[in-house]
Write a protein that binds this DNA or RNA. Sequence first.
RNA 1: GGCGGGGUCGCCAAGUGGUAAGGCCGAGCUCUGCAAAAGCUCUAUCGCGGGUUCGAUUCCCGCCCCCGCCUCCA
Length: 467
Amino acid sequence: MEVRLFNSLTRSIEPFRPLDPKGEAVKMYTCGPTVYNYAHIGNFRAYIFEDLLQRHLEARRFKVERVMNLTDVDDKTIRGCRVMGVRLAEFTQRYKDAFFEDLAQLRIKRAAHFPAATEPRYIQRMIEMITFLESKDFAYKAEDGSVYFRISSFADYGRLAHLNLEELRPSGRINTDEYEKESIGDFALWKVWNEEDGDVWWESPWGRGRPGWHIECSAMATAILGPELDIHCGGVDNLFPHHEAEIAQSECFTSKQFVKYWLHCAHLLVDSQKMSKSAGNFYTLRDLIERGYTGREIRYALISVHYRLPLNFTLAGLDAARAALSRIDAWVRRLHERAQAASAGGVPSFPESESFLKALDDDLNISGALACLFDWIRDTNRMMDLGELSEAQAAKCLADFGVINSILACEAAQIDVPKEITQLLEERQNARAARDWALSDTLRDRILSMGWMLKDTKQGQQVTRNS
RNA sequence: GGCGGGGUCGCCAAGUGGUAAGGCCGAGCUCUGCAAAAGCUCUAUCGCGGGUUCGAUUCCCGCCCCCGCCUCCA
């Protein structure tokens, strides 16, 4: 069985074979955030999908080198820093920091590289690329002083989005003041400075200005990963024009096929609506954490719907994620209790962890994979009910679950029980020994009110809490 | 108008030409001093109408809804 992925370029599911002749190394580029605000859960849906992809490929023994860029200069970041009256770098730094905190909360594996558009070496590279493109007539300087890519010079333009350029229809989003362009579809490589840019500008052969959005990804991707990438991901909304533009710029510059597999995840809806601040259904990760949800729960909710399907995000869905996780937690705890220090040596692997991976091989069929996991949970729970799961088998189960968890990253974090709780538990234990149920119940309420779940088992009291 | 995605149990959501995974919720049972938690068990004929077929949710045709994208929103 091999990994198969839906390639937007061909609109079909294809076997995944990396460019690396040894079939090991995978070069993966993922469009990252524009750091002008806290990222919202729609953004994170995309990053979690990419995380799932990376982790699964790694479980399948690929060596993934992933790049995620940070867009730290554009209209919104410039506007933001001017409103706050701070320098651009200072403004974006706070959202970069926040972004990395959020990634950690969501257990998203860090990319190998997080290049930022304004790093001098990348600005330099963008200028080099644009200079080259202009010299080959792929680009031109327009009357307004900006440099545009000439889409008519690249025959493949439109191939990724499968758009017929002749039939493009104005959507109302066109910036009508860009009449200087030769063609409506031409996009900016270099934007000439204007007053609204304030002190944000770089010197270039075309005068002061700043790079266009698309060129940064081409520059950073090829600078770090080379001219040819295996995988490039992003949200569907980036498919056109952003990725189309990236292909055009990159391929005209390198004369090589830029990306072999293009993967796009669908949008996230909130309560069946497009998320928007005006509709009041706009959530950042921080909003949800304030509501008492954990990064782990949010991760599970976002990962558990196939990436090419619109994900309808709801608080009820988060509650469902919480319940599903606590079921997994309880199972893992039970396995630990059963396994104790037993070694799994000699016990054959349970087939479920492999069927889990096989489901993911099929274009990341997460629903199928989770079904394998829960079937497995039910079966082994039943075995434990009947006393038919040996200590060694339980240990093996945990080892096999480790593979699944290396992808889902769903296991509960170890939380130390604080002293106050331990003390209350001790008191309650004494009360119970004395059959003082009233006191026992009072103490239970107190523990519950402090945010801990309490359960009486044959082995005594057990406390847990959401993580 | 063009391109694309989707309509499967109350909610979320797999899947297959042969009579429908899984999760949540709900119900029942077990456990328990009572609870809670947990565990087990149970719960659908797949948008509508045709066609192909021994047989379709799965293939074809038509229709009805919903949702994206069509120049800088993951």
